[in-house]
Design a protein around this nucleic acid. Structure first.
Length: 488
RNA sequence: GCCCCUAUCGUCUAGAGGCCUAGGACACGAGCUUUUCAAGCUUGGAACACGGGUUCGAAUCCCGUUGGGGGCACCA
């Protein structure tokens, strides 16, 4: 290992594969990524799948795909490997056992044969006494022969770490500065579970050390367990990485961001047609800002500007309206053509999946709707008439703009339209205004009923844009249908 | 219950003792534009949780209170 390698900054994102990538997880991954990239460091993905009961099939691939979609490419991890693998904890069981056994031999950990029933009862008894329900260390007093007998009898066991009494454990956090916690408040943490898998605490410390992690950047929920980790680093004689605990992402009611109160899975936002640029930009600003008034950033710009020093300490509410606005700013920065693939994917997953529409048609639709939406699926929500004929006609618009004489006016308009040869938007406009003039009425008397006829609603892009996109034949057909269907 | 973290407009935040009659953005109101709806532009209202210190001077430092969040598992 040469000097440069030795000083390389190495960070990791270490999710558990319990389903989907949470937006909070995305932000943690993002901050790690930004920190790594701006320091020419290494960004590692490690899968923490030590809880077999929560493992979800396919979750690892899903996690990786979502991370890649967001543009957060990792340098070492599952599928791509690296010098410090394997990067999936369930494939490293022998490593954890080796280190746990070492601690037992050194008297820093011990076998525990207490049943979960006994532990539960113990906690129940302690409850109400006002005390913190800590393990009573019964098994730490077992003699070596008792331990050997238990093991040879096949009694299930865990390995617990010994936590010293009366010690104040101090540590420095890059975001929170000095933090101190009394060791008496820390339980004799289980290191190896009875199923042979390690707990988070052991696996995390061992892997961070073995993978040469220099900075641990993770959610604030881990702050209270840092002392356990510090103790483990001490027991092993390892250097403690720099720590940075990020403020939490919150629901509107200020509780930790969770399902039930809106979408929390990154893939849900992707499915709605939020741009990765928009989501990343928004999420970067939940807890960080550049210190000036700029708000729209690309991933590369974030890499340049990001700094852990500027990360805030208080939790931030995930405010979808701000996301919508930021996403729109990023939509502004894309051409219609660039957005076509996103629209296509949404259509494929919609009830319009059988439609065969040209890229040109879709680009035109995007051009017409792009300032009227916040995410691409909004096009289907607000202008389904580009994909199917109106199923109904808006009642309010009907009452306001559909008069006794309207059908007659529209018939005249259809005649005028039918004369046009491959009409442009301007041709439609000219034809409509000419018809209005001949009828001796204002253009509005034709515009509103025509819009209603072709779209079924009273809002949306300019009428002539809609007519142009739909095409002459379809426009005439739709107006005819409306004349026949609408009775007042 | 105990421990830890945290506290500027409704929301995201700027602010590192005087530049603050607290700035920006989202959202909201008004206007302009537009024979629709948006977008855009202009504009308005809106906050230093409270109480004590320290200091010539505090949103900024200290202490306490209150509020909020997180953690206390053979889950991560």
């Amino acid at each position: 290992m040469n000097l440069t390698e030795k000083n390389t900054i190495r960070v990791r994102f270490a999710p558990s594969p319990t389903g989907y990538l949470h937006v909070g997880g995305l932000r943690t991954a993002l901050y790690n990524y930004l920190f790594a990239r701006q320091n020419n460091g290494v960004f590692i993905l490690r899968i923490e799948d030590t809880d077999r009961t929560r493992y979800v099939e396919g979750a690892v691939d899903n996690l990786i795909n979502t991370l890649r979609w967001a543009g957060l490419d990792f340098d070492e991890g599952p599928q791509i490997g690296g010098n410090y693998g394997p990067y999936i904890q369930s494939e490293r069981l022998d490593i954890y056992r080796k280190y746990a056994t070492q601690l037992v031999q050194e008297g820093k950990a011990y076998y525990c044969f207490c049943t979960s029933e006994r532990l539960e009862k113990m906690r129940d008894d302690l409850e109400g006494s006002g005390a913190f329900a800590k393990y009573d260390k019964t098994c730490s007093k077992l003699s070596e022969s008792e331990v050997i007998k238990n093991i040879s009898d096949g009694n299930p066991y865990v390995i617990r770490m010994k936590v010293p009494e009366n010690r104040i454990i101090r540590f420095y956090d890059l975001i929170r500065n000095e933090v101190e916690i009394a060791s008496d408040l820390i339980d004799d943490q289980v290191l190896i579970k009875s199923d042979g898998y390690p707990t988070y605490h052991l696996a995390n410390v061992v892997d961070d050390h073995l993978m040469r992690i220099t900075h641990v950047i993770r959610g604030e929920e881990w702050l209270p367990s840092v002392p356990k980790h510090i103790l483990l680093y001490e027991y092993f004689g390892w250097e403690i990485p720099k720590l940075a605990h990020l403020p939490l992402l919150l629901n509107t009611d200020r509780s930790k961001l969770s399902k039930r109160q809106g979408d929390v899975a990154v893939e849900d936002y992707k499915a709605k047609g939020y741009l990765k640029e928009g989501l990343i930009n928004f999420i970067a600003f939940l807890g960080w800002n550049p210190g000036d008034e700029r708000e729209i950033f690309s991933l590369d710009e974030l890499v340049k500007e990001f700094s852990l020093e500027r990360v805030g300490k208080a939790g931030a509410i995930f405010n979808i309206e701000k996301l919508n606005w930021i996403n729109l700013q990023h939509i502004h920065q894309k051409s219609n053509e660039e957005l076509v693939p996103i629209l296509k994917e949404i259509l494929v997953n919609s009830k319009y999946n059988n439609l065969k529409l040209s890229d040109e048609y879709l680009a035109n639709v995007i051009g017409a709707m792009r300032v009227r939406i916040n995410y691409i699926a909004g096009i289907l929500e607000k202008s389904s008439y580009f994909f199917e004929r109106p199923q109904s006609y808006d009642d309010t618009v009907l009452k306001k703009h559909w008069k006794q004489e309207t059908p007659e006016h529209l018939s005249k308009l259809i005649n005028e339209f039918s004369l046009l040869q491959s009409p442009t938007k301007e041709d439609y406009e000219t034809a409509l205004k000419k018809t209005a003039e001949q009828l001796g009425i204002g253009a509005g008397k034709l515009i509103h009923p025509t819009r209603l006829s072709v779209s079924g609603v009273g809002e949306g892009p300019g009428l002539y844009d809609i007519l142009y996109i739909l095409g002459k034949e379809e426009v005439i057909t739709r107006i005819e249908i409306a004349i026949n269907k609408i009775k007042i």
